[in-house]
Write a protein that binds this DNA or RNA. Structure first.
Lengths: 212, 212
DNA sequence: GAGCGATTAAAACAAACGTATGACACAAAT
DNA sequence: ATTTGTGTCATACGTTTGTTTTAATCGCTC
């Protein structure tokens, strides 16, 4: 019955469970039974659990990063054409906004975000490498574009500030939805557009801050 | 031979391995053989692997958080005495600087930092709870003090900006030392004082940023 | 419709894990 | 000198893990 879509079913369940419970805390038995497929199907279609994780990343990251790259280079090109510096806010928005649109389009993608957030802090180097293989070229492009936008800062300064920015973004993606501690007087809007604006205010100010 | 210090040996090895390899990736067999103690010693002295993690957190976090609390309340008190608002930079420095001094004093504490950084992104709720039990009261105090320092911002705004700040700090602690991707032209100083200053410049600007 | 490659099903595999057990060593106290 | 309690040791237990294997089933071409 479910011949061709078995791979998709596995990918969907893996994305959801890896994002919610973590990679190591998700067993292939729980995953395959959640997907309604046989236990051996993972190893047959993907080869191993790690290769499945790789496929999960690839399915989302390849189209998403293509859009991000296009938007980053559009910002770069527009600035070069107008003979001005690219704005740090435009650069960062070009990197962040596609994630937002992408999550509205693809169903189930919201459970992908925590997975990305955790990959940044992953202790297991094998897992981290799988993620960074897709992200490293884009991080470098983002870094170089930020260096163009902020010529008054040293490359070392920009590197660390980008590092903080990635940390803030990753942590936000990790906590997507479930919050344990909510101080009184704080509404948890979960309005993605609002949250993106608050995030952008923060990281743009941090990026453009004067050095002490 | 190693009567009383067996517990300490286990705690030291656990701190190092949990920080470097992660909690779930560290087996009790590897841990006890690294500590030079018997496999059963962990369950004898601590009861379980999770209780050991709790003890690892407690040993460092209790004294560290006491200092942080004192410094936060000193900033608060000084502002109240002078009838001025506490400065956001002073508040954040009161929270961050003790970590720096604490890591210089206690040997092996630098491997504790990645453990803290990862606890924030931990998918396993049991582990997260153990960490948050020590941190939540202090996060709340930090949050309230920041609300005093930044009365022009809504509590929701400050909540999210503190959230980003914690993410930036956690990610920095995770990457303490080992870096995979280093763009050309970036020196990796690892000078903790310098890094703290760069971090403070960033998060203070992010905290004080105007709302768009 | 026979034959064949591709896919699924059920069961078994070896390895690793956290934990528990029971014997032993060595103090200090009785 | 004997008891008692504490800590250490080697070892075994029961589970769970990812992976492999062996059969059975399905869809298709000739």
């Amino acid at each position: 019955m479910s011949r061709a879509d078995t791979k998709e079913r596995i990918l969907d369940a893996a994305e959801r469970l890896f994002g919610a419970e973590g990679f190591h805390n998700t067993s292939l038995r729980g995953l395959t039974s959640a997907a309604g497929v046989n236990l051996a199907a993972v190893n047959y279609h993907f080869g191993s659990k790690e290769a499945l994780l790789e496929a999960v990343f690839e399915r989302r990251l390849v189209p998403l990063n293509r859009v991000r790259r296009e938007r980053l280079e559009a910002v770069r090109e527009a600035a070069r054409r107008d003979r001005v510096l690219p704005g740090a806010a435009d650069v960062l928005r070009a990197f962040i906004e596609p994630t937002l649109h992408f999550c509205k389009m693809e169903p189930g993608a919201e459970s992908f975000l925590p997975l990305v957030g955790r990959a940044l802090a992953e202790p297991d180097d094998t897992i981290r490498k799988i993620f960074l293989r897709h992200m490293e070229p884009l991080f470098l492009l983002l870094y170089e574009t930020l260096c163009e936008a902020l010529p008054r800062l040293s490359r070392t300064q920009i590197f660390w500030r980008l590092h903080f920015t990635i940390g803030a973004m990753g942590h936000t993606m990790c906590m997507n939805g479930r919050f344990k501690i909510l101080p009184p007087g704080v509404e948890t809007p979960s309005d993605a557009a609002f949250l993106t604006q608050v995030l952008l205010d923060y990281i743009v100010a941090g990026m453009e801050a004067p050095c002490a």
